[in-house]
Simulated assay, not measured.
Amino acid sequence: MSRPLRIVLAEDSVLLREGLVRLLEEAGHSVVAAVDDALALVPAVLEHRPDVAVVDVRMPPTFTDDGLRAAVEARSVLGGLGVLVLSQYVEESYARDLLADGRGGVGYLLKDRIQDLEALEDALDRVASGGSVIDPEVVAQLFARRRTADPIESLTPRERAVLALMAEGRSNAGIARQLVVSAGAVEKHIRSVLMKLDLPPAEEDHRRVLAVLAWLDA
Rank of each mutant, 00 (worst) to 15 (best):
H29R: 05
A202W: 07
M1D: 07
V14G: 01
L68K: 08
Y108K: 04
Y108G: 00
D112N: 13
D101R: 04
N172S: 04
V14F: 14
A218L: 12
V139K: 04
A167K: 01
R22F: 05
G105A: 03
G107R: 08
R170P: 00
V83N: 12
V193N: 06
H48A: 14
V57G: 10
L216K: 09
V181F: 01
I7P: 03
A173C: 00
A202K: 12
L142S: 01
V138R: 00
E26W: 03
R207Y: 02
P4F: 04
E26S: 11
D135Q: 04
A74P: 10
A161G: 13
E47T: 14
K188L: 12
A167F: 08
Q178V: 05
V180L: 14
R17I: 02
V186E: 02
L99A: 09
L24A: 08
D37T: 09
V55L: 10
R145T: 03
A149L: 13
V209L: 01
L98T: 09
A214W: 09
R58P: 01
G67H: 05
D12E: 07
A123W: 07
E159D: 10
G130F: 08
V138L: 00
A10S: 12
L213C: 11
P200K: 11
L81E: 14
V162Q: 00
L213P: 06
R145E: 05
S93P: 01
A53L: 01
D101S: 07
M1G: 10
A183Q: 15
R69Y: 08
D37A: 08
D65I: 12
E204K: 15
D116Y: 06
I152Q: 04
E25V: 04
V181Y: 01
M1H: 15
E203L: 15
R75G: 09
Q115P: 00
V77G: 02
E26N: 06
F143R: 13
A71N: 01
G174S: 07
L15S: 12
L41H: 06
A53K: 05
A100T: 01
W215S: 10
A218W: 15
S171F: 03
V186D: 00
E168Q: 15
V212R: 11
M59G: 10
L120H: 12
L20W: 12
A119L: 09
L142I: 08
A140V: 03
L165E: 09
E203T: 13
A185S: 15
A33L: 07
V45D: 13
R145A: 06
A95D: 06
D97I: 03
L23C: 03
A161N: 06
R160D: 06
I175P: 07
A211K: 05
A173D: 02
L124R: 02
D51R: 14
A40D: 14
R103M: 12
V162A: 05
E187D: 13
H206P: 02
V83R: 13
V193R: 07
E159K: 08
E204W: 14
V133F: 06
S30L: 02
V90M: 05
L142D: 02
Q141D: 11
P43H: 11
R6A: 02
M1E: 12
A44Q: 08
A123C: 09
L99P: 03
V181N: 07
L24W: 04
M59K: 11
T156R: 13
R147W: 04
G67Y: 00
Y108M: 05
A95P: 03
A27T: 01
L120R: 12
P60T: 12
